[in-house]
Amino acid sequence: MSTEPVIQIRNLSKVYRDFWGRKKVRALNSLSLDVRRGEVFGLLGPNGSGKTTTLKLLLGLLFPTEGEVSILGKPASDVSKNERIGYLPEESYLYRFLNAEETLDFYGRLFKMTPATRKQRTDELIEMVGLKGARRRQLKEYSKGMTRRIGLAQALINDPELILLDEPTSGLDPLGSRDMKDLILKLKAQGKTIVMCSHLLADVQDVCDRIAILYQGELKVLDRVDDLLRNQEMTQIRASKLPPDAIKEIEAIAARYGAKIHEIGQPQNTLEELFLKVIRDSAERPGQRFVNTSAS
């Protein structure tokens, strides 16, 4: 991963004011951080912590009260920066009277793509987000998950260098959520820089290289996910088919060195892993009940 910053935020503050200019709320307070090329960066925080405000300041949808933002070397107010950016909003605010093809064609036109390129990109993206069967249906007939998918497709229409995702997995079923996370990792592998904000911690943990945690508009933590989550006090051994005698021996060795074993047992899979296994098995063996081999 490169250390070249793609986004530079310096002392960024945002105060929302009422019609008369009176201060309503300070949504962001002196935020400073860099996002590096090629990383997946997560903005975390509870509701109202300033995640979405930060994203909207980056995109120029809001104007900063103080501070500076530079994206891909350009100020946030410069629309030409958007040539290399893709944005998936929290809700997919797309034109509901268009169908998937028309939607992607419209956004392609905004990037001045030729008709042939637009057609090619549209076909690729519809295939990628799994909306091939619904490409001619108007978006108002789409489910929430389908709307998120077409929202993602429009964010990628220009093959962007930097992708800003606001709550990318919100409204998606576990399968869709897994696909979204896989896609984020795939985009990362292609060298894209991704900034996502979410309050679904498991999703962030799964895909992010670095995170910033915001609380009441202030930056509380900024570091690599691995480093933040690593517990230096504990040691984990994961083994398969370990017989009971071996476990006793391990306990004895630990006691000999003065260490305390907190737990020995069989780890549990996550519910997400189980769900995905059930769905994949059902797709492979239609009409048959799922048998959980790993649980027996």
């Binding site: 995109l59 120029g60 949808l61 629309v79 030409s80 920066k81 958007n82 040539e83 950016i85 944005y87 909003p89 809700e91 605010y93 797309l94 034109y95 956004y107 905004l110 990037f111 929202g151 429009q154 220009n158």
Partner: peptide, 14 residues
């Protein structure tokens, strides 16, 4: 109001 314009202004559109 519907925020559809957000997806337009976040493209290189003046």
């Amino acid at each position: 109001k519907a925020r559809s314009l957000h997806t337009v202004v976040t493209k290189p559109v003046k």
